[in-house]
């Protein structure tokens, strides 16, 4: 294809997206669109499955049977969401195994929030409330993104996630209505998860390299800073209801803007974690790689068995 032809196809392609048409896997698409989508969707999938680990850490220690069941169901949903997203990604011609390789080799990123440890039960509440809260803000607009399989996966994810945040908030609420010790546990969790949750919405617009293109392809509807503001504005009143203090001395309602002003985010910490030096980066990767490697003989056995069965069928037929 000549350069001119490609340019022409690209123009048609961009116009389709601008008209809100969906792009399906077999449609012609610019290489950059394919690559960007593989990167973003797989990053999203990796975040789901690495995200199972910090919460999974508390399944065996959940304080009641009701909480244990809810947490199991939630972590299971995350596995399901990872699966939907890997599947969406695979329609772009990359296999789940390749995507795993990228994750396991450290080439692919995942949401850095999951590199923080869950040290108390209240962290399970805080993750549901804050981390899922921030995730929902990120994800809801993606239900309308331009790439069909991604949009469809996100519709399913968003529908299923609606219970996750409520689950977390209810844990916080119960703690805050409990004993002094429980309330202190809740406050401590908020103190530790607040800033990482704000960072989760991505670097500031000035630093964000993909924003413009992503907006065009509807991978993004709002900038990181807008999303962050939205998150703060909706979360602070929720903290008030809990009777907890958001750990930001500069947090103040700005009447004029109709929004909260907030303090400086420690971006050094953000980049430190992104670059692999957070509190649990190593543990998370070891857990993923370990599970995959320990499972090799199982996956191989299932394939071998399937092939034997297939052969038996063939020899019976002949």
């Amino acid at each position: 294809m000549s350069e001119k032809e490609v340019k022409n196809l690209e123009a048609i392609f961009e116009a389709r997206i601008a008209r809100d048409e969906k792009i399906e896997p077999k449609d012609w698409m610019p290489e950059k669109y394919r690559k960007t989508h593989i990167r973003q969707i797989s990053q999203h999938a990796h975040s789901e499955i690495v995200g199972m680990l910090p919460e999974g850490n508390w399944i065996s220690r959940a304080p009641s049977l009701r909480r244990k069941a809810a947490l199991l169901a939630k972590v299971q949903d995350e596995a399901g969401h990872g699966l939907y997203l890997y599947s969406a990604c695979e329609t772009l011609g990359v296999s789940r195994d390749e995507l795993y390789d990228q994750l396991h080799s450290g080439k692919a990123k995942y949401s850095s929030i999951f590199n923080y440890p869950t040290v108390t039960w209240a962290d399970i509440g805080a993750i549901g409330w804050l981390v899922d809260g921030a995730a929902i803000i990120n994800q809801v607009p993606l239900c309308n993104t331009s790439f069909g399989p991604y949009a469809r996966a996100m519709v399913r994810v968003c529908k299923e996630e609606s219970f996750h945040q409520r689950q977390g908030y209810e844990i916080m609420l119960t703690l805050c209505n409990g004993t002094e010790e429980q309330k202190a546990m809740a406050q401590d969790a908020l103190n530790r998860w607040w800033w990482p949750s704000l960072m989760m919405l991505g670097p500031t617009d000035a630093e964000s390299i993909h924003t413009e293109q992503s907006m065009k392809w509807k991978l993004k509807r709002k900038t990181n800073d807008e999303l962050r503001q939205q998150f703060i504005d909706q979360t602070v009143p929720q903290a008030d209801i809990l009777g907890l203090t958001v750990p930001d001395p500069d947090l103040k309602w700005n009447e004029e803007r109709g929004s909260y002003d907030f303090g400086e985010i420690d971006w050094d910490e953000f980049w430190q974690v992104v670059k692999g030096h957070g509190p649990c980066n190593k543990e998370r990767m070891n857990a993923r790689v370990g599970a995959w490697e320990r499972g090799t003989w199982v996956r191989d056995a299932a394939m071998a068995y399937a092939e034997k069965q297939e052969e038996k069928k063939v020899s019976k037929a002949s």
Binding site: I49, I59, L65, R66, V75, Q76, L83, G295
Partner: peptide, 29 residues
């Protein structure tokens, strides 16, 4: 089974194992 969630040989088996665990916890309750 709950201990295994997130550590199984594939995503699909993780999901299956969790389902069984959830059934059992439900019965327990």
């Amino acid at each position: 089974l709950g201990e295994l969630c997130g550590h199984g040989p594939s995503l699909e088996t993780d999901i299956a194992g969790t389902n069984i665990s959830l059934d059992l916890i439900g019965q327990t309750r």
